[in-house]
Structure formats: C-alpha cells, structure tokens
Nucleic acid binder design. Structure first.
Length: 238
DNA sequence: CCGTGATCATGG
DNA sequence: CCATGATCACGG
C-alpha cells in the first residue's frame, strides 16, 4: 500500500470524546466495539497493550471505559451517573461463563448510622448495570480477546431479595463489631473480601465490645454463580 | 479444580 | 489511605 492511501485520519475509528448523553447512545457505542478485540481497540486509541495482566489487572476495564466514554477516576458512584448506569466488564470463558467474581464497591466499616439497603452504595450501583462480557481465558493473549455484546440489566425482585439479605447480614456483623469474623464464605450472591494494595494496609473498624480495631479494608463482590445467572438470562442457557 | 484471600496500577 | 479498574495464585 502506498503512503497516503486509505490513511485519512477521519476514516479511523476513535474513542468518543464525551460521555454518552443517552442510554441509546451508550448502547450504540457498545455495538461499535462488539466483536472487536482488545488489541484493535488499544491500537486505535494508541494505548500500549500488556502481554498479560499480572501487573495490569484493570487494563481491559479501563480500555472499555475509554471507548464507552466513561470518566476515569475512582468516584464511589455509578460510571454514568447522569444515566443511572454502572459499567461492569466481565471476563468470560469459551462457554460464556464468568471467570472471576465481580467487584461492586468498597465496604464502609465506620460511620454506619443511618445506612440501610436502599441508600447503600451496593444498591445504588447494582440498580442498573451495563454488563460487557470480554473473553478472559489466560490462553488468549490480551490483544486477541474479543469484546462481547453488552446489555443493560436490573435485578429482578428475587435477585434484589438475595442481594439485600446478603448485604444486611454482612453489614449487621460489621455494626456488631464482628468484621474480623466475616469470611468470603458468607453471602449467597454478595460477599465480602479484602480489598487493598497489600495485606499490610489497615482500616479502622469496630471490634469486640465496641473497641476500635485495625482490620484489612474490605470490598463487596458478586459471586460467579450470581453473574452467571445474569448472563444466562440474557443469552440463554449454555 | 476452584474460591478465597492477596495483590497490582492509578487518581485523588 | 480510599476507591476505582480488576486478576493472581495458593491452599483446601
């Protein structure tokens, strides 16, 4: 190919410069990237592609954010707050099954007066989620992993009940000073796990008899069995 | 084999 | 340190 042929920059697909103004626009952006690989999206956006995710664990999610027009950052709010939508990329295997649990949000350990399910960060984020499956098998290089079809989801009445029960059980234990006794085995759909840069990081919490203790920061995660049901609802049984 | 507990990068 | 984006990797 001679230089100058088919290289007009205006012909090149580029990441959007703004956040989507409507749900329709957001879904249209999903359609654009569906079927493409992470490598193609990275190259078009001039983003360096890691060989693996050992030291780039959030790379795919951040690349998707870029292509959907989500603001980067670490705000404890929905990704598309004006649309009331949270974005979650989810790594799936060749059968479309989740390969990992899904992080929801940080878990507050102090200042819990007045906190309830309906005003919780968990409920806020899970009210409406844009799920975007991405191939995640480790035998596929990051650059070759294909983006799936994103879809909007809201929990049905039964799913809300399960989530609320888990959340209330976990938060009650924290309020009662039992955070140190919580393990990731608690919770049917939603569970609690350490969430920090290392095991040395600490956060304040309430311990036995109301004493102040130092514990590992925790985050809420969705079990694979729960997200698997969501994917099955959308795409059918496997 | 798989889930739990640990860890990595980044921005504020 | 908090909170986001998550995946890694070891022990049961």
């Amino acid at each position: 190919m001679e230089s100058g042929d088919l290289t007009d920059a205006s012909e090149q697909l580029q990441p959007p410069r703004n956040e989507p103004q409507t749900e329709t626009e957001l879904l249209a952006r999903c359609s654009v990237i569906a079927g493409m690989t992470l490598g193609e999206l990275a190259k078009l956006a001039k983003v360096k592609i890691p060989k693996d995710f050992k030291r780039h664990k959030g790379w795919a999610g951040q690349l998707i954010e870029l292509w959907l027009g989500a603001e980067a950052g670490s705000k404890p709010t929905q990704d598309f707050q004006h649309l009331g939508i949270e974005l979650k990329t989810i790594p799936v295997d060749y059968q479309g099954m989740p390969l990992e649990t899904t992080y929801v949000c940080y878990c507050p350990l102090q200042g819990l007066q007045g906190l309830n399910w309906l005003n919780s960060n968990v409920f806020n984020k899970l009210q409406r989620v844009l799920w975007l499956p991405v191939q995640g098998n480790r035998d596929i290089a990051p650059a070759d992993r294909i983006i799936g079809n994103g879809f909007l989801w809201s929990p049905n009445a039964n799913q809300i009940n399960v989530l609320r029960n888990d959340w209330e059980e976990l938060m009650e234990a924290i309020v009662l000073g039992n955070v140190a006794q919580i393990t990731a085995r608690m919770g049917d759909a939603l569970h609690l796990r350490p969430k920090a840069a290392s095991g040395q990081i600490t956060a304040e919490a309430t311990g036995d008899s109301g004493t102040l203790i130092q514990t590992r920061p925790r985050g809420f995660y969705l079990r694979k069995s729960f997200t698997q049901q969501i994917l099955q609802q959308q795409f059918g049984t496997f």
